[in-house]
Amino acid sequence: MKVAFYPGCVSRGGCPELYPATIKVCQKLGIELDELTGAACTGAGVLQEKDRKLGDTLNARTFAMAEKKGLPIMTICSTCQGVMSQAYKRLMDDAKYREEVNALLKEEGLEFKGTVVIKHLLWIMVEDIGVDRVKALLTRQLPDLRIAPFYGCYIVRPSWALGFAEHPDRQHSLEDLIEAVGATVVDYDGKTKCCGLPILLINEKNSVDMVAKHTSTAQHLGANAMVTPCPLCHLNLDGYQPKAAKQSGIGIHMPILHLPQLIGLAMGFSPKEMGMERHIVSTREVEEAIAGRSAVGAGRR
């Protein structure tokens, strides 16, 4: 399938490992990427608190660009996905508002019609490609991994903006993929909660407490890695984990994987190809667990 690729700012900014990992994995998945290089940031919910219409207009512009290409938008960030989904719903629910926003796009020759489909790579893998097909593309299973999912707020709430009624499988899509790579799902309350990033620069203590809470709970339940479809969550869960360990006094060590990294590793890409060395929290044990299995496999051959 071909998609209008919306990488978002962070996949090339704070988490530069995500962008190349995504490109590689999509190639294997048979997703052809037509990147929306002229599209602006979604506003990440921050712009919206200052001026909602401004944010919605920037997103409507992105939608119109994808509509012009006749392609669905693919996101790789829970925040991008959620902010776009919410904007889409507001624009679709209110014809007058839609008109106002379209008037602002007119000068550029763009019009948001409402035909666009906006989907996270996570959903594309589960809904369009299918878990079985993804599984067939893997070169190895990862049974030694016990993985805690971490969705990111905006890809689960509010449920009415995210098509959960029509696509109930979205609510356990991340678990489905963890199982597809042969790993064990570690379930816990924190999986749909907040990573704390939005208040990192405002109330660092609370933000870091959230990191500590979720990573230590997952660790306590026996997880040896966490996977997230949201690079913003990754920034906080990975980047601020050392601080979280210090602040909470708990010895936390929880490698945080981007979703494409997990799939990529199971596809046989090397940790280096997946940019694992860029993580703050070392992913060595994860890599070893995978390599150990591979060695067994190699031995048999």
Binding site: E49, C153, R157, P158, S159, K193, C194, P198, I199, I202
Partner: peptide
């Protein structure tokens, strides 16, 4: 107001 982390739990 600035301590809200915009997680949408309350909206949901």
């Amino acid at each position: 107001i600035w301590d809200c982390t915009r997680c949408m739990e309350c909206v949901q």
